[in-house]
């Protein structure tokens, strides 16, 4: 009998915590002393993915830096729901300047810290997809190119949610937004090439680029931690479903994120100096319909008659992600092995 069962931990690292894991493998979010950098009382919608992603990322950054952190925040939902006078939900030194200049503000903060010899204090810039891929893109690219010591985090909910769900350059093809209504011959957003900011960041060959998703907390935290071990320009792109903008139930936020990953719609990867270093594999591949169907922004793809061409197009994009990043292992996964990626 050769039953060589290696470490198996019931829920492995899939759950937020796991009493069976060594303390060093537990998540920041499981910690009773986590910072709650974004505290209760914020005005985000019920089930907000961005609120969740921001707390995940910033708490992890706080732990990685021993609470020596300053954040610059772009205009957008995150800013509006966290700091309406007279209350702020932030527990960390935080500044909001403008919509499109967050990366540059962060550069200024980093420069000030360097000149003051306080390099133990680290800088995070954060914004939504609009503030990152559109209006803030120039400043972001400049920050990358100069390799300033800033971690930029984009919370991508694929449209301008704060202003009422208008299209951004991160809005996927066929998605209905307030400015890409589901009417006419090609309803919803156009199928362009999109603006794949993680790949653009990789093209800058900055020290660290990663994508993450609110449904994979450990991976997200590990990436923030890794980012904080590195000096220079770093970029993390976090996929954060928006119940309001996507037309999903408030309790589905994490589930939808998971579907985005399991269908290959959103690849979860990491790269250092422009080279791919980590790929989070798809656990159980699903067709893109499973991801699209629960979202009202894609409802026109299914009724009154299914838009098979558009669905096939989205499937092809997912398949390309799977091919390009190797999201599925060619070899069968060992049956009883493994405890996740701890």
């Amino acid at each position: 009998m050769t039953a060589t069962i290696v470490k198996f931990y019931q829920t492995g690292t899939h759950t937020v915590g796991n009493r069976l894991l060594d303390p060093e493998h537990r998540s920041v979010q499981a910690d009773m002393r986590r910072t709650n950098s974004l505290n209760s009382g914020h005005r985000a919608c019920q089930g907000c993915g961005e609120a969740l992603g921001a707390r995940y990322a910033i708490d992890a950054a706080m732990q990685a830096t021993d609470n020596q952190l300053i954040a610059a925040n772009a205009t957008g939902c995150l800013e509006v729901f966290s700091t309406p006078y007279p209350e702020t939900s932030w527990q960390i030194p935080w500044i909001h300047s403008l919509f499109g200049n967050t990366a540059a503000v962060a550069t200024g903060i980093a420069a000030a810290l360097r000149v003051k010899g306080r390099t133990e204090v680290r800088v995070v810039a954060q914004g939504g997809d609009g503030g990152t891929t559109d209006i803030g893109f120039g400043c972001l690219s400049g920050m990358f190119e100069r390799n300033d010591d800033v971690l930029y985090i984009c919370y991508d909910n694929e449209a301008y949610m704060n202003t009422g769900v208008q299209r951004s350059s991160a809005t996927p093809g066929a998605a209905r937004t307030a400015t890409t209504p589901a009417v006419g011959a090609a309803p919803g957003n156009v199928f362009g090439q999109g603006k794949n900011l993680p790949l653009i960041a990789m093209a800058h060959e900055i020290p660290y680029v990663a994508t993450a998703i609110v449904s994979e907390l450990r991976d997200l935290e590990a990436k923030v931690k890794r980012a904080m071990e590195i000096r220079g320009a770093r970029y993390i792109h976090i996929f954060v479903p928006c119940p309001l903008g996507w037309g999903t139930a408030s309790n589905q936020t994490i589930h939808i994120a998971r579907l985005a990953k399991e269908t290959g719609v959103f690849p979860v990867i990491a790269a250092e100096h422009g080279e791919l270093t980590k790929v989070s594999k798809i656990r159980k591949q699903l067709p893109v319909e499973d991801y699209l169907k629960p979202q009202r922004r894609f409802a026109h793809l299914f009724s009154p008659t299914p838009n098979l061409a558009a669905i096939a197009h989205i499937q092809a994009l997912a398949d390309r992600n799977i091919r390009r990043f190797g999201l599925i292992d060619a070899a069968p996964v060992g049956a009883a092995a493994g405890a996740g990626d701890n």
């Binding site: 505290n39 009382g41 914020h42 966290s82 007279p86 209350e87 702020t88 932030w90 527990q91």
Partner: peptide, 8 residues
């Protein structure tokens, strides 16, 4: 603003 004041 003072940090964490949103608890109100």
């Amino acid at each position: 603003l003072d940090v964490g004041s949103s608890l109100a």
